[in-house]
Amino acid sequence: MLSYPFMQNAYMAGTLIAIISGIMGVFVIARNMSFLTHTLSEIGFAGAAFGIFMGWQPLNGMLLFTTISSIGVGELGAKSSRRENSITAISALAIGLGILFLSLADSNASYATGILFGSVIGISRANVVQMMILSISVLVVVVVIYRYLKFDSFDPIGAQVKGLWTRTLSVIFLVLLAFSVSVAAQIVGSLLIFILLTLPAAAAKYFAHTVGMMISVAVAFSLVGVWLGLYLSYVTNWPVSFFIAVIEVLFYFSALVYQRIRA
Rank of each mutant, 00 (worst) to 15 (best):
Y11L: 15
M12V: 11
I17H: 05
I20R: 03
S21N: 09
S21H: 07
G25P: 01
G25C: 02
V26P: 05
A30F: 07
R31S: 02
M33R: 03
S34D: 03
S34Q: 05
F35V: 11
T37Q: 06
T39Q: 08
S41A: 15
I43F: 02
G44M: 05
F50P: 04
I52S: 09
F53I: 07
W56E: 07
L64Y: 10
S69M: 06
S70Q: 10
I71Q: 00
G72K: 01
V73F: 09
E75T: 12
L76D: 00
L76E: 01
G77T: 09
A78P: 03
K79G: 03
S80K: 13
R82Y: 09
I87G: 10
T88V: 11
A92H: 03
A94P: 02
A94K: 10
F101K: 10
S103F: 08
L104P: 15
A105C: 11
A105W: 10
S110T: 13
S110I: 12
T113M: 10
T113F: 11
L116V: 03
F117P: 01
G118T: 02
R125I: 07
R125Y: 13
A126P: 08
V128K: 04
V128N: 04
V128H: 03
L134E: 08
S137P: 08
V140D: 11
V144A: 00
Y148C: 06
K150M: 11
D152Y: 02
D152M: 04
F154R: 09
F154P: 10
D155L: 05
P156A: 03
I157A: 13
I157M: 13
A159Y: 06
L164E: 12
T166N: 14
T168D: 04
S170M: 08
V171Q: 05
F173D: 02
F173P: 05
V175M: 09
L176D: 08
L177A: 12
L177T: 13
L177M: 13
V181M: 02
S182H: 07
L191Y: 14
I195R: 07
T198E: 05
P200N: 07
P200S: 05
K205S: 13
K205V: 15
H209V: 09
V211F: 02
I215N: 00
V217T: 15
V217G: 14
A218N: 02
A218S: 12
A220V: 11
L223R: 12
G225A: 07
G229S: 00
G229E: 01
L230W: 01
Y234W: 14
T236G: 08
P239N: 00
V240C: 02
S241R: 00
F243N: 04
I247T: 01
I247L: 07
E248N: 04
F253S: 14
Y258N: 00
